[in-house]
């Protein structure tokens, strides 16, 4: 047995190494599924935006299949969709992704999970990453989602649900509050 290597902060100066243009766009013309835009901001405990965070997302394709060898479901893969995205926050703490709405994937036991996107948050001042999830406002299956169901207080559950954008078709807003009022739910995985 070997012990885990500890996590350390990504620090403020990762941009020249970890970022490549276009990583916030997960779709091409050939990708199957409903186009969506996820946009949001990241805030600290004072409500100040983080201009040096890195948001990574991982999601299933429109059919609800992950592009990964451990996903052995009999659902189609999409050669034009791999499901990973990465976006740094800008000076106003803003990030955005252009992707597709994922299909549902299996949950524990014989449950089905509501469509969701897995999120990793990295930043200066964070010795290890935080993990959260994006669900979608108006999705009926949210009510039976086994992971959302773990969050007791309805007010806290709301922090995991991206809101439909005002007047903009297919746009969802998902803000991340690291601390304080409206603090986002983070998971121990």
């Amino acid at each position: 047995m070997s012990g885990q290597t500890p996590s350390q902060t990504v620090g403020p100066f990762f941009g020249f190494a970890l970022l490549r243009e276009g990583h916030e766009v997960l779709v091409s013309d050939a990708t199957a599924g409903e186009r969506i835009v996820i946009e949001g901001r990241v805030f600290d405990g004072d409500g100040a935006p983080l201009n040096d965070a890195l948001i990574e997302i991982w999601q299933a394709n429109a059919a609800g299949r992950y592009d990964h060898p451990d996903d052995r479901q009999e659902k189609p893969l999409d050669a034009a969709f791999h499901g990973f995205g990465r976006c740094p926050t800008d000076d106003s703490g803003r990030f955005h992704f252009r992707t597709i709405r994922p299909g549902p994937v299996p949950g524990p036991g014989n449950t089905l999970q509501a469509p969701h996107i897995n999120v990793t948050v990295l930043a200066r001042g964070m010795l290890k990453q935080l993990v959260t999830r994006i669900y979608f406002e108006g999705e009926p299956s949210n009510a039976d989602d086994p992971i959302l169901g773990l969050v007791g207080e309805p007010e806290r559950r709301k922090t995991l649900i991206a809101k439909r954008g005002n007047g903009k078709n297919g746009t969802y807003t998902f803000d991340i509050r690291l601390q304080g009022p409206g603090e986002t739910v983070f998971f121990d995985v």
């Binding site: 600290d44 001042g125 690291l178 986002t184 983070f186």
Partner: peptide, 10 residues
């Protein structure tokens, strides 16, 4: 100012 105050949900 960047650490959550609520416990992580297992």
């Amino acid at each position: 100012k960047r650490a959550p105050r609520q416990p992580l949900i297992l």
